[in-house]
Simulated assay, not measured.
Amino acid sequence: MPYVTCAGPPPGRHGHHPGTHQIMGRASGKRLARGRGADDRPSLFPAAEFARMRWPMAGSDWRQVRASINSPPAPMIGGHLMGRGKTMLSIVIPYYNERDYLPATLHSLGRQTNRNFQLILVDNASDDGSGDIARAVMADYPDIETQFLHNAVPGQLPTLEHGLSRVTTPYVASCDADTLYPPHYVGRCLDLFASAGDGAKPDNRVVGVMAIDLYAPVEHAASRRRIAKIIQKSQIFSSQCHSGGYAQAYCTEVLRAVGGFESAGWPYLLYDHELYERVRRQGQIRYCASHYCFPSDRRVDRKSVGWTWAERTVYRFTPSAGKGWFFYQFLAKRFARRGLIQAKLRDRDF
């Protein structure tokens, strides 16, 4: 199926705001134009806002960051809140003992300029008060419809599935409790879903939207290089996933048709890549240089819960038609031997 990458916001004839400026000109990343979209919001995450909300990079103390973020919400920076229309997107966030990270994530989603979404927060039997914290934070955003669910079955996948069972919107996104989302995240996601040339043709409809994970303010050189790298990789290695579960969104109908988040044949880690493999054959997957998020820095060293360099290399160079073999014949056996099942993420030994 077609795999589509946009190096900048797509042109207006595809349903996007015609006044939106280009963010990344070419995959080389030699220029990064700053501009405003038609709704007057900044196209880039402002440095001042990022500095106030960012994760504890460069060794800064997370508790100080959390204290500053946990204050009452400030007015929107550089834009205005759009009036609520039809709810188009459900954001499912599974969490387990995330009291130190969850507030900042929820505040970043509470400050979205596009309000046509709902939150589905699923507590996976936390015992650190995360559920109460989630309710307290979302009380600051009464206009956002929020469902507070509980799932006693341990594991991220059954928790995501529990959230998916409550989704009634055309699109669903999975977000993580330790990731920041810029104010235009929801709006850009919905724009990209609306960008297909002819949605009546199965091969041409957008069934998935992937965000780029950044670990520095978007205007920093490191982030510009990463954006260019991911855009280029998504073009060269077009049958593989370049995004994590914290940054993925799918057409709800398609997601359910391929079996949902949880696959009986894949109880292992890297569910996001395996899920991507099931969905990508149903239509277009879109990446865009202006669609990104900021995961926490605790993801930097995850060797104990990740795949090896050799496994990543095999994945990269396995042809599109052989990706099923890679997951279900090759990688499944290796992960089973190492005990890399979903429940291992609860150990937090990374």
Rank of each mutant, 00 (worst) to 15 (best):
D40M: 14
Y287F: 15
I77D: 09
I236W: 05
A332M: 02
R302L: 04
G79M: 08
I285R: 02
L157P: 01
I285Y: 02
R66D: 01
G283T: 09
I227R: 12
L160N: 10
L32T: 13
A51C: 06
S263T: 01
M24D: 06
I285H: 08
F148L: 12
A27G: 09
L340C: 07
M210N: 03
G283A: 09
R63N: 08
Q232V: 11
L149K: 10
N70T: 06
R302M: 07
I133M: 11
T20M: 05
A336I: 03
K303F: 02
Q156L: 15
I231T: 03
G15R: 00
G110L: 08
C251V: 04
W266S: 04
G208A: 08
V92E: 03
L109D: 05
I285K: 01
L149S: 13
P10I: 08
D203Q: 15
G85E: 09
A74C: 06
D272M: 07
L214T: 00
A47T: 15
M82N: 14
D123S: 12
D127N: 11
P142F: 03
G306F: 04
G260L: 08
P202M: 11
R52Y: 12
W62V: 10
I69A: 14
V167A: 01
K333Q: 05
R66W: 09
S238Y: 07
Q232E: 15
N124T: 13
F148M: 11
L214W: 03
D40I: 02
R316D: 07
L44V: 08
A104W: 01
R226F: 07
G187Y: 00
W307T: 03
Q284R: 13
N70Q: 09
A48H: 13
D272V: 07
D176A: 14
Q329M: 06
C293Y: 00
Q240I: 15
P142D: 08
S126F: 08
S130R: 11
Q248P: 06
R226K: 13
R135L: 03
A136R: 15
L275K: 10
V206W: 00
R111I: 01
G199N: 14
T105W: 02
V258P: 07
I227T: 13
L160F: 13
L214D: 01
V207T: 12
V137Y: 12
I91H: 00
P9F: 02
F330G: 00
H150V: 12
S304T: 05
R316Y: 04
D61H: 09
V207G: 04
A343E: 10
R338D: 00
Q112K: 04
G25H: 09
V305N: 10
Q342L: 03
R205Y: 03
W55V: 05
G25K: 12
Q112E: 06
R205P: 04
L106C: 10
Y250R: 05
N97P: 11
V279H: 05
G29T: 10
L121A: 03
K30H: 11
H16W: 12
S28A: 13
D61C: 10
R278W: 04
G131I: 03
G35D: 09
S108Q: 06
G245C: 04
A221M: 07
G306L: 02
C251F: 02
D100R: 08
F327L: 10
K229I: 06
Y215K: 13
A152Q: 12
K229C: 07
H17C: 08
Y276D: 00
A332K: 01
H80Q: 15
R36P: 01
G110H: 02
A134Y: 06
R166Q: 07
G244V: 12
